[in-house]
């Protein structure tokens, strides 16, 4: 029985990890006052590039790094258009998704139909075999530890560091921040690149760990879910963490409910993760304890006064 629950928990972690990584990246972007709707596209490019490079070099690590790089490269296009030319962020983000999905198909075209061994979970002799906690704490995919570290790191950065404070104030009111001498555009550029790196990493996770192959459309809307998580989590990193796990957990549990033939309608069960996540995060926000509204300058272009 313990093995059964452990196995479910492992599955939940696998499902939640890509959402968490992509959402944390987007959180930083939005906290700086930029709305990048291109997460899905950057994820797709990360997935196809990651898989392609890992296959060509026969090195998973190179693949992951290439995935990150591809996400950043695509986000740079977004930065150029929205920061450089002060274009509409919503339109540019949607265009980025379209561009990314198309580009990903192109990059991955030669690799459709090939398979790889998934990047294995880490193994620490002695610790990984411990009963109960062994596999859950010491035997996860490296991406899991990375995602947890990212969540803690992002929370710490925003709350405790001077740079984090600058980023937040730029997101709240870019004109005042500029008047104070903060580098609005440079900070936003770095934030956008960070978001691209995270989306690319999440994409590489999909094609190298979750389901180790490349196929067009394999992101299947996860970028949009990550975007929604940021909003429902009221731009708080730890709530993003909670939301990603709630969503992943609900997804897996409803499948188990189906497999156990509980007799509930499968359509309702399929909708359950979305409903549960929305309700839970809305309820948390309603308590108004630490709830933060959207960053004040979110989605508006900044043109430095001359």
């Amino acid at each position: 029985m313990i093995g059964f629950w452990e196995s479910i928990l492992l599955t939940v972690i696998t499902a939640a990890t890509p959402l968490l990584i992509a959402a944390l990246g987007e959180l930083i972007v939005e906290k700086s006052g930029v709305l990048n709707l291109g997460v899905e596209g950057m994820m797709a490019v990360g997935a196809s590039t990651g898989f392609a490079v890992a296959t060509l070099t026969d090195s998973s690590l190179t693949g992951v790094l290439a995935g990150i790089g591809a996400g950043m490269a695509l986000s740079l296009v977004f930065a150029l258009v929205t920061l450089g030319f002060a274009a509409n962020q919503v339109a540019a983000g949607l265009a980025l998704t379209i561009l990314g999905l198309g580009l990903a198909g192109l990059i991955g075209a030669k690799f459709v139909g090939t398979s790889r061994i998934a990047i294995p979970p880490i193994h620490i002799p002695g610790l990984s075999e411990l009963p109960l906690v062994g596999k859950l704490v010491f035997g996860q995919s490296p991406f899991f530890y990375l995602s947890v570290a990212l969540a803690v790191g992002v929370a710490w950065f925003l709350k405790k560091t001077r740079a984090g404070l600058s980023l937040r104030s730029i997101g709240e009111n870019h004109s005042s921040a500029h008047a104070l001498g903060l580098k609005v555009l440079r900070t936003r550029l770095l934030a956008i690149l960070f978001g691209g790196a995270c989306a690319g990493l999440a994409g590489a996770y999909l094609s190298l760990v979750y389901t180790p192959f490349w196929s067009p459309g394999m992101t299947a809307g996860r970028g949009w879910i990550a975007l929604a998580l940021v909003v429902f989590a009221s731009w708080l990193p730890l709530r993003v963490f909670l939301g990603a796990y709630l969503f992943g957990g609900a997804t897996i549990l409803q499948m188990h409910a189906q497999a156990a033939s509980l007799g509930l309608p499968s359509q309702a069960l399929s909708a359950f993760p979305y409903i549960a996540t929305i309700i839970a995060l809305v309820l948390i926000s309603m308590r108004r304890v630490g709830a933060t509204p959207a960053p004040g300058s979110l989605g508006t272009a900044f043109v430095p006064p001359r």
Partner: peptide, 17 residues
Amino acid sequence: KIVWASTWFDPGKEADA
């Protein structure tokens, strides 16, 4: 045992199922 994934193509979800 049957799990309806409610999709024709979503590798992650199909794997989870």
